[in-house]
Design a protein around this nucleic acid. Sequence first.
DNA 1: CCCTGATTCGC
DNA 2: GCGAATCAGG
Length: 240
Amino acid sequence: MAVSWTDERIATLKKMWEGGSTASQIADELGGVSRNAVIGKAHRLGLKSRPSPVKANDKPKAKKAAPAKKAAAKTAAKKAAPAKKAAPATKQPTKPDPASAPAPTPAPAAAKADASGTSQPIPNRAPDLPKIVSYGPGGFLRQGPGDQQAPIPPAPPRRRVPAKPSPEIADKTSLLDLNDRICRWPMGHPGEPDFHFCGAKVNPGFPYCVEHCGRAYQAQLPRGARRPPPPLPFGGPRVR
DNA sequence: CCCTGATTCGC
DNA sequence: GCGAATCAGG
C-alpha cells in the first residue's frame, strides 16, 4: 500500500462518508486510494451504508443464493482453471429473513426559506436528526437557481495521487472541523487547496447558517413557473 | 455502459 | 488490516 490510513485520513473518510459523499469522491479526495479501499475501510470502521443502491431492497420473495458460494467457487475456479463460470456447487436453500428495520425516511420538509431579509424565516424547527439533510448528487449541498456565489471556473480533474498531503488551511473551516454546530456550506471546490466550509454557526436544526439555509432551502416555485436551470452542486464537478 | 455500495478472500 | 475482484442493483 502506498499510503496508510492515518488518523487524519480516517477522519476525512468518516466525515465525507457520513456526509453523504460517494466512495469515489472520497477516494478522489483522499488520493492514492481506490474507491474500493475507501469502502473497505469504511466498513472496517463500522460505518454503514446509507443510500446503497444495491442493498436497500428487501423483498419478501425468494432470493438468490448467498454470494459467498459463488465468490468462493469463482476464485477457486479462477485460480485453478480459466473457466468462465464454474459449475454451481451444492445449492443450499436460503431462508429469507424477516423484514428488518424500515428504511429511513428523510422527509425534507425544508419548507419555505424566505429570500428577503425578514428576520428568522424558519417557522418549524427541525424536530430531530442533527445529521445532513440535503445533499445534491454531487455529494454536496444543492443550491437554488436564484443566485450564484462563485464563478467556479476550474473543474477538478479526476486525480488519484496528491490531494491533501497537508495543506495549510489555516483558520479556514476544513472538512475535519465540521461538526453539528457549524455551517457546512462549501466554499470552493473540494480538492482545491483553499477549499473550506462556511463555518458560521448553524441555524438551529439545520446544517447551515441562516444565510445559507436561505440558499439551500428555496421555496418551490408554483407549477408552471418551473425554471429551466437545474440546480448544480458546483459548476461541473464531474469531468470525463 | 455508466454509476453505486457490499462482500469475499488472498495477501 | 488492507484492497482488488467480484457481485448486484439503479
